[in-house]
Amino acid sequence: MDMKCLVRQQFDSDALGLDFYRATRIDPDILGRELAALPLPYMADAKAHAQDIDGAKLLMRLGFRKMCVQPTFSQDLTGAAGAACGEPMGAASMPEAELDAHAANFPFSRFGLDPDVAQAARVAHQRRWIANSMASGEILKFIEPGAFVSFKLKDKAAVIDLISVLPQARGRGSLLLGRLRSWAASKGLTRVEVTTESENVTACLFYQKNGFRLDRASVAFHLHAGAGR
Rank of each mutant, 00 (worst) to 15 (best):
D29M: 10
F148K: 12
S74E: 14
L177G: 03
T24C: 12
H102F: 14
C85H: 11
G79H: 07
D161P: 00
V117K: 11
Y207M: 07
G226E: 07
G86E: 00
A225R: 03
L58D: 06
G137K: 04
L153M: 13
W183I: 13
I143Y: 05
A158D: 09
F11R: 13
W183C: 03
A227C: 04
K187D: 01
I143Q: 12
T195R: 04
G82W: 12
D19Q: 12
S74D: 07
G82P: 08
V194C: 07
K141Q: 06
V201S: 02
G79E: 02
V192T: 15
I53Q: 13
S186Y: 12
I130K: 10
G226R: 15
G17H: 03
A48G: 01
A23T: 04
M60Q: 12
Q70E: 15
S186V: 07
K152M: 02
A36S: 14
M134H: 02
A48L: 09
P107Y: 02
F206W: 09
L62D: 04
A157M: 00
L223V: 12
L162H: 06
S164N: 06
H125G: 07
L18R: 00
R179A: 03
S186P: 10
V7S: 09
L77W: 08
S198Q: 07
R8V: 00
A15D: 05
L205V: 11
R65I: 15
A23S: 11
A118K: 15
A56N: 04
A120G: 05
A36K: 08
K154N: 14
A48M: 10
Y42G: 07
C5S: 10
L214V: 11
F73D: 07
G146S: 09
V201N: 01
K152P: 01
R110L: 10
V219N: 09
H222D: 01
L77M: 06
G90C: 04
D161Y: 00
L223N: 06
V165D: 00
A120Q: 15
A227P: 09
V7W: 00
L113Y: 05
V194Y: 04
C68R: 15
A135W: 06
R127T: 05
T24D: 15
M60A: 11
